[in-house]
Design a protein around this nucleic acid. Structure first.
Lengths: 124, 124
DNA sequence: TGACAACTTGTACAGATGTACGATATTGTA
DNA sequence: TACAATATCGTACATCTGTACAAGTTGTCA
């Protein structure tokens, strides 16, 4: 089962897509409400982004009354895998160690978190 | 000491910047040679990207004979911090745990790597 | 059933990006 | 000193992105 390579996600699209996953089923309004304070954009802009995501194949929608209800058309796992892979290539030449090291050094990971990770890495 | 927020880096620019850091001092030619096989782009394109990076304030250059020698004008650390932060926000809402978890589950981190990280997290 | 509010659709547009050709300048070398 | 090789510079251009207004559509409530 080959996953077809969908068109690339722009930064804003990525953020919107994340919110849709989080909401599971989302209307434009719901997505707007869920936008983090750091990033408030107009209703119309969210709409466009959702439209583009659907056109690119990341979302689908059904109608509920007048409103469109969007939901993901691809597994979050796939998108994350590709996004993380691309990001890693670009900024670290594909090596994850310096990335995680950076996170640890900047307090994004606690010693506890790391402890919990150990058993994940082993089981692969 | 406030770090001024330079204009955003596009994906391609990020990759080129990484290569310049890696080379320390780089000519267009050097950067071209260093491009990973997965991503071969024309000499002229690399030039444009280097020019734009300089214009944005990420690079500076000196002349050595006919060739421009580019080098970083900002600390890698700063750029990494911002890039990772933005990426984390967009795809994971700012939470590093699922990112690292993903890396661990996909074999990007070995149990050994994680072991080595432990002492970093503590010392912050 | 008619008006209103909430939505969607179409369209627009400036600026960013990726990509690169052609003209010009510099240099080592024969 | 003239030539071939190598670089840079200016310019171009199709897309992609972020952002959003205006106009049309539809469900709902009085």
């Amino acid at each position: 089962m080959t996953i077809k390579r969908l068109p690339a996600l722009s930064p804003s699209e990525t953020e919107i897509l994340r919110l849709v996953w989080q909401l599971d089923k989302a209307t434009v309004q719901k997505v707007c409400d869920k936008l983090p304070a750091r990033r408030k954009i107009a209703y119309a802009t969210v709409q466009t982004l959702l439209r583009r995501l659907e056109k690119k194949g990341y979302l689908k929608h059904t109608n509920s009354g007048k409103a469109h209800v969007f939901s993901a058309a691809v597994k979050r796992e796939h998108v994350v895998k590709r996004s993380v892979g691309d990001f890693l290539d670009r900024l670290f030449g594909g090596d994850a160690i310096p990335l995680v090291q950076h996170l640890a050094e900047h307090g994004k990971l606690s010693a506890d978190d790391i402890e919990r990770l150990k058993h994940l890495a082993g089981t692969k």
